[in-house]
């Protein structure tokens, strides 16, 4: 019989359409997983990284499709919720490692509102130097900012801190 753990495992194979390898679990997008007592119906609630993320409908479909593909369930419901809105601290340690490997600086842990200061001196994902500066907080997608490393002279992207 399908368990909640099975569903979480399946969700680890649902990836961000922009950054393959980075799953919706790594991103901290999943708010809850419920399995009916008979194991035949599954409900997943997730929260988007940004309200305007164009990938929301794609992720919603991908979650349902992956669960149907991997698990013997009769129905899958996927809901979007903002009850516990996403923030960048929700990204898992594994998620941060994957971001780094893909050349993105992971967001720092934030405890207060974002100010410009936390967006400077972000460690460069290529050489590790903190001799870097923010070029613009608006990058190729809403969740990414553009920085420049003065040590290795390369531009790099950061997954933006959001609080």
């Amino acid at each position: 019989m399908v368990t909640e753990q099975d569903v979480w495992k399946a969700l680890e194979q649902v990836y961000d359409p922009e950054i393959p390898e980075l799953s919706v679990v790594d991103l901290g997008m999943i708010l809850s997983v419920d399995v009916a007592p008979d194991g035949k119906a599954v409900k997943v609630v997730f929260t988007p990284t940004f309200a305007a993320c164009p990938a929301i409908p794609v992720i919603k479909e991908d979650i349902a499709a992956k669960i149907r593909e991997l698990l013997p369930v009769e129905s899958v419901t996927v809901e979007v919720s903002y009850d516990q809105p996403w923030n960048s601290n929700r990204i898992t340690e594994r998620g941060r490692q994957i971001l780094k490997q893909r050349g993105f600086a992971p967001p720092p842990h934030v405890t207060a509102e974002i100010e410009l200061e936390v967006l400077h001196t972000v460690p460069c994902p290529y050489c590790g130097s903190t001799n870097t500066e923010l070029q613009t907080p608006f990058g190729p997608t809403l969740c990414r900012a553009i920085h420049y490393c003065h040590n290795c002279h390369q531009s790099f992207e950061q997954f933006k801190p959001v609080m």
């Binding site: 309200a51 903002y82 509102e113 100010e115 608006f138």
Partner: peptide
């Protein structure tokens, strides 16, 4: 509206940082 408001506020924070600069 509560969670939505919290979410939007975190997004608009970047907008005001931009405008202020």
């Amino acid at each position: 509206i509560r969670g939505i408001a919290r979410k939007f506020k975190s997004e608009i924070k970047y907008h005001i940082l931009h405008a202020d600069v």
